[in-house]
């Protein structure tokens, strides 16, 4: 099936097997291998990308379901020469080790801050109140991204810096 997506700002037209997941379309067809396959079942978050600005697990979506969508991957946030502030914060705080969950963490963190700004609640948000960006809120909202190297404290510090404009 032919689909059109805008990947990192670039219009792309792809002829895909309907079975191709968004993740495999990115990795195998568009060579955007920054989005990782950690579990392929929505259980780890390594494939997190932004679809029309919203973070999702790219492994649990068919590419054909995204015809017409704008998809942003880690490659669309910044490059090694011009890092996105969140990427810079992850680097500064050593918020990764093996690096395999990292693109998903960073995409997730960027979208998380937007969700937070929009007032979306989490289990840490008091009833009837707007969320405040406590460490507990960051931790809860980033729990869909598993890091087996366990850079969790560093990830919280990086996100806090990026959120506060220090990165």
């Amino acid at each position: 099936m032919r689909i059109n997506i805008t990947a990192n700002g670039e219009a792309r037209s792809l002829d895909l097997d309907p079975r191709t997941t968004l993740l495999d379309a990115l990795r195998e067809h568009l060579k955007l291998t920054g989005s990782k396959k950690g579990c392929d079942h929505g259980q780890c978050g390594a494939c997190t990308v932004l679809a029309n600005g919203t973070r999702i697990n790219a492994c649990l979506s068919l590419a054909v379901m995204h015809d017409g969508d704008e998809v942003t991957t880690i490659e669309g946030l910044g490059s090694p020469e011009t890092l996105h502030p969140m990427q810079q914060a992850f680097l500064t705080h050593d918020a990764f080790q093996c690096g395999y969950c990292t693109p998903g963490q960073i995409c997730s963190a960027v979208a998380m801050l937007a969700e937070f700004e929009a007032g979306a609640p989490s289990p840490e948000t008091p009833r009837g109140a707007a969320p405040t960006l406590s460490d507990a809120e960051i931790r809860e909202r980033m729990s869909g991204n598993i890091c087996r190297c366990s850079a969790y404290p560093q990830i919280v510090a990086a996100i806090r810096d990026a959120a506060e404009g220090r990165a």
């Binding site: 929505g42 978050g45 697990n57 649990l60 979306a120 609640p121 289990p123 009833r127 009837g128």
Partner: peptide, 29 residues
């Protein structure tokens, strides 16, 4: 649903149950 002001005002427990499930990425889909 979890973020909807009406849901949070009238049925806060529904919002809280929803965010107790899955991850933000899954709940977005």
């Amino acid at each position: 649903v979890a973020s909807d002001p009406l849901v949070r005002a009238r049925f806060p427990m529904l919002s809280e149950a929803i965010v107790a499930g899955g991850s933000p990425q899954l709940r977005n889909k």
